[in-house]
Every structure is written in structure tokens, then in C-alpha cells.
């Protein structure tokens, strides 16, 4: 870990400084700083700036950026009205980490690509222009969708996948003022600049996340991984589906573990909406989701895995009493 200046913020405005690196839960940033993958010169601790409330806002919900994952997952409103979010959070990390990790920090977590984590490997995300040693390397965890020649990393989180499906909005604020970014657009694809994980501008700070009115229906987060707990997703599916009169009237889908961002394909949702659940239809939705999917070798299986998981999730959620 490189030496750094440490200061504690008493208000969020202090953290809106391009020269400062924000630390909240620290569960990923410190991990990376120990490997010197992250080398901030100045750290600002925002754990005491407030922003730690979950409150009703109209039909929706506003979640402060410093709300801990545990509190959010256990919040009675979230459990009842946005169970997909609870489920996604609870599928991630461990009890200890969820107690510390924050809503804003979780959105800011970086890829677990082992080449990004190795300062002796080439990585365009760590050092733009250096090249990518992941390509041609061991790629079990890597992207099958939206990757580029420069980067094949995945966004590793679960919470953001649910937020993406739930049409959440990320509230950010900088010296230039406040703005809102749809969760689906918060993370970006690597393109030719993988050093940027998301759409946050220098000096901007996440202040909270807003959830629109509850979607109702059945909500499922299915995470597939190499062990049953305490492991990142190989593939995850977030689904919220409402059924009326035997037809799917509203479908929201997002996918984790497959791209540089939570993956959402509105075309696939549109394909399903208004129709009765049917195996062939689910297959077509999977085709739409997987359009352009390409494996890197070790992760080729994710294409088939995503298809199977999606179809099974849809089948289960729309079956029997749905």
C-alpha cells in the first residue's frame, strides 16, 4: 500500500473533490490498495457524512449512499416491495462484508479480473494503452457480452444487477451540481477506454439511489457460481415478472457476471411482454439476450449457462400459480 494522506469528511460536499479518493466501506478499495492496484494519494473517509437513511419517497424509495448492504437487504420496505434487491444483495459476499459495504461503494466496486489485480500483468484498465493479458489468459470469470479488444473484464457485483432490472436511478453530485444517472447506464462498456468503469465524472460523488414504484409480481435473483456461498457470479439473472390473465404483462431482466456492466436487453423484455409463457418464446428471449455473445475460451460455457439459467428462471417464475 502506497502512503497517502488521510482525512475524514464531516459533510458530503468535502468529498466532491477530484483530488480526493473516497473511502466508505473500503471492502474493495483497501483490497486493491494492498496490491497497489489502487494508489490514491489522498483518501477521504465518508463514513460519518450521514446519507445513511432509507426513506419512502412517494411510491418509491430513496436509499442513502452510505446505507450498508446488510441494512438495505433487511429493510422492511425493500424486503416487501423490492425483494429482488434484497435477494441480490444477500447473494453477494459474506455477512461481515455486507455489514460494511455501502450502497454507493458497491456500485463503485471494480472488476475481479486476476490480471487487473496483478501489477505485473498488462492491463488497459489499470494502465491505459498497456495491453490486456487477460485475453489469451485464464478467462473463466470474463465477459461474453460487450467486451472489447482492450478489455474483457466483468463487473462483479450483484446489487447493481437488481438495481438495473428495477429501473433504479443513481444520484450523483459534484462541484458542478447534482444529476441522475439510470442504474442501467451507470456502468459502461470498456470500448477503447476500460480505465473508466462507470459514468461518474471526476469529483462526483454518489449520494444515493432511488427506486421507482414497486414492480410487484414475482422477483427472482438466481446466481450461479462455483460454490454455494461467498463467491462471485459466473452468471446471474435478475427477473421481475408480472402476470395477468396468463400473460406476462411486465418483464424486467438483467444479468450479472457476463459483461463490464449489468447487462440488460430491453428487446428481450419486449419480446416477452404481452405473451403467455412458452418455452419457444423463452428461447427467443435468450437469443435476443445473447446476440453477439462471444466466449474467450475458458468462459465459453457462460453462453450456454446464461441461456439455461434464463429459461429456467422464466419458467419457474411464470409457472404454477404465477
Amino acid at each position: 500500500m502506497r502512503p497517502f494522506d488521510f482525512q475524514r469528511a464531516s459533510g458530503a460536499a468535502e468529498a466532491m473533490d477530484p483530488g480526493l479518493r473516497v473511502i466508505a466501506g473500503g471492502t474493495n478499495l483497501l483490497d486493491l490498495m494492498k496490491h497497489e492496484v489502487e494508489t490514491p494519494a489522498r483518501l477521504i473517509d465518508v463514513n460519518h457524512v450521514g446519507l445513511d437513511e432509507v426513506r419512502r419517497e412517494g411510491e418509491g424509495l430513496r436509499i442513502g449512499a452510505l446505507v450498508r448492504n446488510s441494512d438495505l437487504a433487511a429493510h422492511e420496505a425493500v424486503r416487501r416491495d423490492w425483494p429482488l434487491l434484497s435477494r441480490a444483495i444477500l447473494a453477494g459476499a459474506s455477512g461481515q462484508i455486507r455489514n460494511r459495504a455501502t450502497t454507493g461503494g458497491n456500485l463503485m466496486q471494480r472488476t475481479r479480473c486476476p490480471y487487473f489485480y496483478d501489477i505485473h500483468a498488462r492491463c488497459n484498465k489499470r494502465e491505459p494503452g498497456q495491453g490486456c493479458d487477460a485475453i489469451g489468459g485464464f478467462t473463466r470469470s470474463h465477459a461474453i457480452l460487450g467486451a472489447s479488444e482492450a478489455c474483457i473484464a466483468t463487473y462483479p457485483g450483484d446489487m447493481a444487477v437488481a438495481l438495473t432490472a428495477l429501473d433504479a436511478v443513481v444520484e450523483v453530485e459534484g462541484q458542478g451540481g447534482a444529476r441522475e444517472i439510470p442504474a442501467a447506464g451507470f456502468h459502461r462498456l470498456p470500448g477503447d477506454d476500460p480505465s473508466r468503469d462507470n459514468d461518474l465524472r471526476p469529483g462526483e460523488f454518489i449520494t444515493g439511489v432511488r427506486l421507482p414504484a414497486p414492480l410487484g409480481g414475482r422477483q427472482v435473483y438466481r446466481k450461479v457460481r462455483d460454490r454455494r456461498s461467498y463467491a462471485f457470479a459466473l452468471v446471474s439473472v435478475a427477473l421481475a415478472v408480472t402476470m395477468e390473465g396468463g400473460r406476462m404483462t411486465r418483464v424486467r431482466l438483467a444479468f450479472g457476471g457476463v459483461a463490464h456492466k449489468p447487462w440488460r436487453v430491453p428487446e428481450a423484455e419486449a419480446l416477452l411482454e404481452g405473451h403467455a409463457p412458452h418455452a419457444a418464446l423463452f428461447d427467443r428471449a435468450a437469443d435476443a439476450v445473447l446476440e453477439g455473445a462471444r466466449g474467450q475460451g475458458d468462459n465459453d460455457f457462460k453462453i450456454e449457462l446464461l441461456r439455461r439459467t434464463l429459461v429456467a428462471t422464466l419458467t419457474d417464475a411464470t409457472g404454477d400459480a404465477a
Binding site: R8, G26, T27, D31, L43, D45, Q96, I97, N99
Partner: peptide, 15 residues
């Protein structure tokens, strides 16, 4: 009162 990983937290954050 809450459990957490002490390795992933700076001492300075625990004033």
C-alpha cells in the same frame, strides 16, 4: 456490535 473483516478497514476509520 456488528461483525466485520478487520483486514478491510483502516484503523484510522475507527475513531
Amino acid at each position: 456490535g456488528r461483525r466485520m473483516n478487520s483486514c478491510l478497514s483502516l484503523a484510522a476509520m475507527h475513531e
